[in-house]
């Protein structure tokens, strides 16, 4: 009786562990995909800026009296290529971790 119970428990435990591994694998892959999609979308709608990320934007205006062109500095975050690369690297990191923590294939 005790022996069967232990076996059952062990069996359940293996099944449970496999489920957890599967779920963890799934979460990591989903997270990697989500980060990649959000990162590209944020960069794309942020103006597809190919330079460094900007924390402020400068626009030039003309003073009507002196006709001098002068800068107006506005605080605005513009994601650059570094932002895109960093986001893709984060996504790649989660993918790699997900790959190594994938459920083991049981050979038939």
């Amino acid at each position: 009786m005790e022996y069967t119970f232990l076996l059952r428990r062990l069996f359940w435990s293996d099944q449970r562990r496999d489920e957890l591994v599967k779920r963890r694998h799934h979460i990591l892959y989903s997270l990697a995909g989500l980060i990649a999609v959000l990162n590209v979308a944020f960069w794309f709608f942020g103006g597809m800026h190919l330079g460094w990320t900007r924390s402020n934007e400068t626009r030039m205006e003309i003073d009507p009296v002196t006709t001098l062109e002068y800068p107006i500095i506005e605080k605005r975050f513009t994601p650059g290529i570094d932002f895109l690369v960093l986001g893709m690297m984060t996504s790649g990191f989660f993918s790699v971790v997900g790959y190594f923590l994938r459920p083991k294939q049981v050979s038939k």
Partner: peptide, 8 residues
């Protein structure tokens, strides 16, 4: 002196 990137 100001440049567009705060770290820069």
């Amino acid at each position: 002196l100001n440049v567009p990137n705060s770290m820069m």
